[in-house]
Computed example of a mutant assay.
Amino acid sequence: MHYVKKLYSSDIIGYLMIFGAGTLWGTIGLFVKLLSGVGASTSLIAFMRLFMGFCILIPIMLCTGGLKIFKIDKKGLIQCLLLGILSQAIFNYCYNVSIGSVGVATASILLYTAPVFVCIMSKIIFKELIGSYKIFALIINLAGCFLMVTGGDLSYFKISAVGISFGLAAAFLYSLVTIIGKIASGNIHPFTVVFYSFLFGWLMLGIISAPWQSIGAVSGLNFWIYAFGYGLIPTVGSYLLYMGGLGKNLEISKVPIIASVETVVATLIGVFVFKEKLNFINVLGIIILLSSIVIMNMKLKENEIEDGN
């Protein structure tokens, strides 16, 4: 019984770290709007996020672990390479193509199918059980996201074979953060995983879009302040919490549901900071999404009590 309580406590910390990561990710829209407001292009914004995150991590890692924390074996380097290229660089490319083809609302809805991919892969790779309550939580989570993004107005939803294909590809690549991150977190320090994934990510984005060509036009003080905040809060802070949480004894299929609090935070920032309108349907979407997170944790608690008896 003592072991079960200790294990449950560790799980709670892990899920709280995932929740915290999602909360910080919810500020992404704030920084994107601030950077866009000073003239930064979409490709430059994506590049600066990873590049600034990479730079910010260097002194943090030196202070916490010295040079030894940068050491990584070949297997770990390959995992970080996959994270950086697939889940950072190519993900951003696919998501931007989807937005350009079907709009922000539809692309966002397609991105929120990522938990479905995580659920499927967690069963195949980690042999997790997919019970009816998980399926129910996934369904209402997706429904909540849909209502928050569209406000119930179906005119926001656009159809395009290219846009939908790239949107689903972005969702799959986004889901790999959880899967590959879980595999890597078992053997590598979270700081190290995040550092090398950022490194490979900004290098790949640089090759794809050459964003520095436009940096001269926006290199004022405000741009660098916003870029630093973007690299620190929804990038370094969120990924360190996320990878740290994945290192705990968590059910991976539950992780993206809990991290979806990002959508709620983003919506509330839009209302309170940018004075965006929030109707009854948006509020209903928030309640539904938060309910999916509660369902996951209520079920977890019940399972732990049963195990303890």
Rank of each mutant, 00 (worst) to 15 (best):
G53D: 04
G53C: 08
F54S: 01
I56L: 14
I56M: 06
L57S: 03
I58F: 02
I58C: 03
I58P: 00
I58Q: 03
I58L: 01
P59L: 02
I60F: 00
I60M: 00
I60R: 00
M61Y: 05
M61P: 00
M61S: 05
L62S: 08
C63S: 14
C63T: 08
T64I: 14
T64W: 05
T64S: 13
G65C: 10
G65M: 07
G66S: 12
G66T: 12
G66N: 13
G66W: 14
L67F: 15
I69Q: 06
I69R: 09
I69C: 08
K71M: 09
I72M: 09
I72R: 05
D73I: 11
D73P: 06
K74C: 08
K74Y: 13
K74N: 09
K74R: 15
K74I: 11
K75I: 12
K75S: 12
K75A: 11
K75E: 13
K75Y: 13
G76L: 10
L77E: 07
L77H: 08
I78C: 08
I78F: 15
I78S: 10
Q79R: 12
C80Q: 04
C80M: 10
C80T: 09
L81T: 09
L82P: 01
L82Y: 12
L82D: 05
L83H: 08
L83F: 11
G84M: 02
I85R: 07
I85S: 07
I85L: 13
L86W: 04
L86S: 06
S87A: 10
A89I: 08
I90A: 06
I90V: 15
I90G: 02
I90L: 15
F91E: 01
N92G: 05
N92T: 14
C94W: 02
Y95E: 03
N96I: 15
N96Q: 15
N96V: 14
V97R: 01
